[in-house]
């Protein structure tokens, strides 16, 4: 059902999201086949009434048929033909229904034929190791595959864009909901604190000592937060944390810092003369190693806008 599955999806894509540029491209290319055949079919006007002068020599036809037809006793293997009864009339102008009818006819026919071949014990399935020339070349099949992949990609992109659009639509609602939640949380926490205070009053500051300690500690914590200066430096250290580097070799962060400092020094210069280092020499004039690709592409973009 590969082909059949593809048709509806393509048609759906064209109808539902025609506001996107990709979609129109896809639907255009996909409906090409259909519309073309449509055009040709619509061009063809049928006579509403059969012309009366038309010849239909039935005896002659049957005679010719008997003349040319294969003998009745010819084996079925020669013709491999199956007659399939179509149960209902097919609307010609409905492309999908028509193709589906042909598909089912072919499928039924194949089933019958395969059953017959099986009963006769004749080979009909191609073994895996049977390689031979195909009707379509590998190059062509590569193209087909490429097209299918591209279509898939486009469809996925479409889907993504649609999702993003929908998410955008709902984002306001989501934001409002979040704010409400936050307000509620805040209110609850305040409430709980109040409750706790009341409880404490009721119990008459029974374990006051602990509470005092706790509050003191909390206060201490607050002071910690306010303290300025480099992190990881003890309050009494006047060396700005540099003293620690030498006596506390175990600190990894410091090591890293040292390294990066060294690198920066080597790059930008620290100590020694700087004069000659920053000038071009004969070797460096034509050396474009430092100009990386990304920055160039960025420039291009800027030029475009």
């Amino acid at each position: 059902m590969v082909v059949l599955k593809k048709y509806p999806s393509s048609i759906k894509g064209g109808e539902m999201e025609d506001d996107e540029e990709f979609d129109t491209v896809v639907s255009d290319s996909e409906s090409d086949l259909e519309s073309e055949s449509d055009g040709e079919e619509k061009d063809e006007i049928k006579l509403t009434e059969p012309s009366k002068t038309a010849i239909n020599n039935k005896e002659g036809l049957l005679e010719k048929l008997s003349e040319i037809s294969w003998p009745k006793d010819a084996d079925w293997i020669h013709s491999l033909s199956v007659v399939i009864d179509q149960d209902q009339e097919v609307d010609v102008n409905d492309d999908l229904a028509r193709e589906a009818a042909f598909y089912t006819q072919a499928l039924q026919g194949t089933r019958e034929a395969f059953a017959k071949l099986e009963s006769k014990g004749l080979p009909y399935l191609r073994p895996f190791d049977y390689y031979a020339e195909m009707v379509k070349t590998d190059a062509h099949m590569g193209k087909v595959k490429g097209k299918l992949l591209l279509e898939k990609k486009l469809r996925e992109e479409q889907e993504e864009r649609r999702k993003a659009r929908e998410a955008k639509k709902f984002s306001k609602q989501v934001q409002a909901e979040k704010q409400k939640d936050r307000a509620k949380e805040k209110k609850e926490s305040i409430e709980s604190v109040k409750k706790w205070r009341k409880q404490r009053e009721k119990s008459g500051y029974a374990n006051d000592k602990d509470e005092m300690k706790l509050s003191f500690e909390e206060g201490g914590g607050g002071a910690k937060g306010k303290r300025k200066g480099p992190p990881g430096v003890s309050p009494g250290d006047r060396s700005g944390g540099k003293a620690g580097k030498f006596n506390k070799g175990g600190q990894k962060g410091m090591d890293k810092k040292r390294k990066s400092r060294d690198f920066k020094d080597s790059k930008f210069g620290f100590g020694g003369r700087k004069g000659g280092k920053k000038q071009n020499t004969a070797e460096t004039t034509n050396d474009f190693k430092g100009f990386n690709k990304e920055s160039r592409s960025g420039n291009k973009k800027r030029r475009q806008f």
């Binding site: 013709s79 033909s81 179509q86 006819q105 026919g109 194949t110 191609r126 031979a132 020339e133």
Partner: peptide, 15 residues
């Protein structure tokens, strides 16, 4: 895609 030259099965509609 199919083999070049494999014999086809023929299906005809009943009409």
């Amino acid at each position: 895609n199919h083999l070049k030259g494999s014999r086809p099965l023929l299906t005809f509609s009943a009409n």
